[in-house]
Design a protein around this nucleic acid. Structure first.
Length: 685
DNA sequence: CTAGGGTTAG
């Protein structure tokens, strides 16, 4: 039983894998300097223009929709392009009536149709129809426009399917469209793969393609993959494309975000050596990265260097980046010093500066200082906005003080600041996280009565809150309500629903949900696969779980540590220690470093399998690899000892836990108590 | 870069 069909659509066979050997024997096409932007900019959308109104497209649209209705699927097919054996006279007359339509209007019509799910089948039908009646040439361009449009509207799945019906062999235009579509859909890895493939087909690439991949990496909430970045950089250099200041800056930003400030530093130096001035944003990103790594001293050095070089007058933004470092490591005193330094250099603090300091005070539990600073910023003519209050709210949420939400809301209103959608989203989340569903629903209603439309994040937060509270029925209702209200579910929404159905063991509905997701043109992401591994694994459906893991790898996604945690944990809970250790080995083979979490699971696997000696060898492994055992580690070890009735060894583990600096929690104390109770029982009997 | 940042799922 296949839980998840292999994700790479048929397109993969032609576009995502190396060209067959035979094609290498043919003379390769002459290098074409490709321009990524051609398809996007060649056809300005001017559906309302006078020129456009000269033609009545209604009969054609009607014809196309009846045409595509029978196809039932939104996935375009090439059938319509097949040489007609017999032409319907009505259709011929229809085609004749559009003879005079200029190419750019066809392009505009195509883009417009492709941008909405309801008219997508018509768009897909339009291209082969135009080919068939020879109404618009360069079907290659038409296909790239369509792929582009699909990519822009987040329907990469359809774009990939479509590329199978594009004329073969793939042209530079098709490659560019696919690279762009992949990049815009958060698949930088795939975009990079296509980039390499494009070069193997003898096409030259250009700066925009590298920028697309880079920006796709930067847009993702996850930090960019450092190895992918390195390959991208060396690929660029091997093409002897001179990176300009902009591209180098993008790389500096990307390496900074990837947590590799050293490489960012050396790139920055290289840029300077070439006489290129890096963008301010690159320096600022580097400062942030150094700060995030706790390397505030180096951040200060970079800051001073750019200060001295006078290339970039350190203005508010640079100071903010520096400040961010101190706030992140909790050095409140240093943060205050930076703030004073700004005053001395008469660099005016902006809303961001104040926000960072207010953040620091709130995190330190100094709510009063934060309030004073809010007053101060107002006096200095800087309006506090919803952003700073949502940060404060998030800080309280993370400390479990959801009751403070009301205080923050009041304070905000007192300052004449209206809560915005983000603020409400955080507030709903704060209530949802602590099981206050009524408050969450109240906030939701209040938001709507304030005239703010909930977005997908609002719905997702609300739906997941109900799932977490076990109200799966209500979650499903909200999922329906969301769509009735015209809000399209996104990948996250489906992930939440898949998790919900999996927890309930409603496997058939889970599969329907997956189909629905794909029907919408959405791709499964790492979280989707991890969720599947988790729910299948927890219910003992290990084959399904493994299939999902395999499907994910085939789909070109890199398994995350969390994915393996889910798998190891699933085996551990059932005491299947051999399988757990095997999954652990696969994880290491995938280049993932063992974390405390996965090692704790491994201890649990051995413990549940009555292999206490091996459980303790994992503890030894942790110590040898500079991984600090935590409360969970020691609690799980105590559980392992109790399982094999070695109660008398438990107190020593408890003591080691304390002497190693762990604070025992309720579970740890309970574990010790039950060991002592067993010891007493065995003595008494 | 006079915008963005802050928010959801494993």
């Amino acid at each position: 039983m296949l839980a998840v069909p292999p994700p790479p659509p048929p397109a993969a066979s032609r576009f995502l894998s190396p060209p067959p050997a035979s094609s290498l024997c043919r003379p390769s096409p002459p290098p074409i300097s490709a321009t990524s932007t051609t398809a996007a900019s060649a056809a300005p959308i001017l559906l309302t223009s006078l020129e456009f109104r000269r033609y009545d497209f209604a009969p054609l649209l009607e014809f196309l929709s009846s045409f595509s209705d029978s196809a039932a699927s939104a996935a375009p097919t090439a059938d319509a392009a097949a040489p007609p054996t017999q032409l319907d006279p009505t259709e011929l007359r229809l085609a004749e009536s559009y003879r005079a339509v200029p190419a750019h209007l066809w392009h505009a019509l195509l883009k417009s149709l492709a941008s909405s799910p309801s008219t997508l089948p018509s768009a897909a039908a339009l291209v082969p129809w135009l080919e068939r009646h020879r109404l618009c040439f360069s079907s290659d361009l038409l296909y790239s426009i369509l792929i582009h449009a699909l990519g822009r509207s987040r329907r990469l799945h359809h774009a990939l399917l479509l590329s199978t019906s594009a004329p073969s062999p793939p042209s530079a235009l098709t490659f560019n469209a696919l690279i762009s579509a992949s990049a815009l859909n958060g698949r930088p890895g795939q975009a990079f793969h296509l980039l390499s493939l494009m070069r193997r087909h003898g096409f030259l690439s250009d700066h925009p393609n590298y920028t697309l991949v880079l920006q796709s990496l930067l847009r993702s909430p996850d930090p960019p993959d450092p190895s992918l970045l390195l390959r991208l950089l060396s690929d660029l250099l091997s093409q002897r494309l001179e990176p300009d200041a902009r591209l180098i800056s993008d790389f500096v930003v990307a390496f900074s975000r990837a947590g590799d400030p050293d490489r960012a530093l050396s790139l920055l130096a290289a840029a300077q050596a070439q006489g290129l001035t890096p963008k301010t944003s690159a320096v600022v990103a580097l400062l942030s990265a150094l700060g995030a790594a706790g390397r505030v001293a180096e951040a200060e050095a970079v800051f001073l260097e750019f200060h001295a070089a006078a290339e970039l007058q350190p203005r508010t933004r640079a100071y903010n980046a520096l400040l961010k470092g101190y706030v992140k490591i909790g050095a409140l005193k240093d943060a205050e010093l930076v703030f004073e330094e700004m005053e001395r250099c008469s660099v005016s603090p902006d809303e961001g500066t104040y926000s960072l300091l207010i953040d620091a005070y709130t995190n330190a539990g100094r709510w009063e200082s934060a309030r004073i600073l809010i007053k101060e910023m107002e006096m200095n003519g800087v309006q506090p906005n919803s952003y700073v209050f949502s940060r404060i709210l998030a800080s309280f949420r993370d400390k479990g003080e959801w009751q403070k939400s009301f205080v923050v809301l009041r304070e905000m209103r007192n300052n004449g600041v209206q809560p915005d959608r983000h603020f409400y989203n955080v507030m709903i989340d704060a209530f949802g996280k602590y099981n206050c569903l009524h408050h969450a629903m109240d906030a939701f209603e209040r938001m709507r009565s304030d005239g703010i439309e909930p977005d997908a994040i609002t719905w997702n937060t609300l739906i997941d809150s109900h799932c977490k509270a076990g109200r799966h029925d209500k979650a499903m209702e909200l999922f329906q309500e969301m769509q009735e209200g015209g809000c399209m579910p996104c990948t996250t929404t489906y992930n939440i629903m898949i998790n919900s159905l999996g927890q309930q063991g409603r496997w058939e509905e889970l599969k329907e949900m997956l189909e629905r997701m794909k029907g919408q043109g959405l791709l499964l992401n790492v979280v989707t696969y991890t969720t599947l591994v988790d729910v299948y694994g927890k219910s003992g459906r290990f084959n399904d779980a493994i299939e999902c893991l395999e499907a994910m790898k085939t789909g070109g996604l890199k398994p995350s540590p969390t994915m393996y945690h889910a798998l190891v944990n699933a085996y551990a809970q059932r005491g299947l220690s051999e399988q757990a250790i095997n999954a652990f080995r696969v994880m290491r083979a995938d280049g993932i470093k063992p974390s405390i979490i996965v090692l704790n699971s491994l201890i649990n696997a051995f413990g549940e399998d009555q292999r206490d000696t091996e459980a303790f060898s994992v503890l030894q492994f942790m110590k040898e690899n500079d991984l600090k055992p935590d409360v969970v580690t020691y609690t799980t070890l105590m559980k392992a000892l109790i399982r094999v009735e070695k109660f008398e060894k438990v107190p020593a583990v408890y003591e080691e836990m304390i002497s190693s600096g762990c604070t025992p929690d309720r579970k740890a104390r309970a574990m010790l108590r039950s060991a002592l109770r067993y010891m007493k029982q065995t003595r008494d009997s």
